[in-house]
């Protein structure tokens, strides 16, 4: 393999070695214990998942009062639901919901880094952090949405919400039509992570 192709792999190895060294030095210094990182990761991976977001969306679809409270004070409304303990920590206090409606489509991005509503959506997909996506979604959202299969009518307003340290946005997608008879479990299946980011519609096949 030529030097050019070997480079990224070397870079991987050096990053991997640096992370391992930092963790073991911090353990040696007594700043963290050998279990600290595992515990934090286990909490994130088991409790902070899109399942929380799905529950919030379905509740908003079936309870107009809840939707209104959610839009007015997102963390307080989320606290009404039976979601994992500690949900309000870990950036939960900065959660802000926006709702799609006829004629209005919302899209969340983070133009500067990769802020994401972890407590309700888990960790962001790879492309959310991609510089091309971040720049283009801010500049030409209608075109980007069309490229990922969301074709909106010309007169639909697109609102782009730029997440930051103090506001982590997520989207309440529109409830698909002809779902009046659906159970809550059936409704939850219609809600995807992508639909709660505004890059897909609820019920759309991905």
């Amino acid at each position: 393999m030529s030097g050019q192709f070997a480079y990224p792999q070397d870079r991987e190895q050096s990053s991997a070695a640096k992370v391992a060294a930092l963790e073991s030095l911090l353990i040696e210094k007594g700043v963290i214990t050998p279990e600290t990182v595992n515990k934090v990761l286990a909490y994130f991976e088991s409790e902070m998942t899109p399942l929380n977001g799905k529950k919030i969306v379905v509740r908003a679809w079936t309870d107009a009062g809840f939707l209104a409270r959610l839009l007015a004070d997102t963390p307080a409304a989320i606290a009404e639901l039976d979601l994992p303990k500690g949900m309000v920590g870990a950036e939960g206090e900065h959660l802000r919901a926006v709702a799609n409606a006829p004629g209005v489509h919302n899209l969340i991005i983070c133009s500067l880094c990769s802020c994401f509503p972890w407590p309700v959506l888990g960790l962001p997909p790879y492309w959310y952090k991609d510089p091309v996506f971040r720049a283009r979604a801010a500049r030409e959202p209608r075109k980007v949405l069309a490229e990922v299969g969301v074709h909106l009518p010309e007169d639909t307003e697109i609102k782009v919400w730029d997440s930051s340290g103090t506001a982590r946005w997520f989207v309440i997608p529109e409830r698909p039509t002809a779902t009046e008879d659906f159970t809550e479990a059936q409704l939850m299946e219609l809600v995807t992570t992508e639909s709660m980011m505004g890059v897909a519609l609820a019920g759309a096949r991905s």
Binding site: E12, A16, P125, W127, V132, E147, V148, T193
Partner: peptide
């Protein structure tokens, strides 16, 4: 162009490597 994973990695793992 968008990164190709923009349209293809729905639900894919969030980390490529353990580190």
């Amino acid at each position: 162009r968008l990164h190709e994973s923009c349209t293809t990695d729905h639900g894919a793992p969030r980390f490529d490597h353990e580190w």
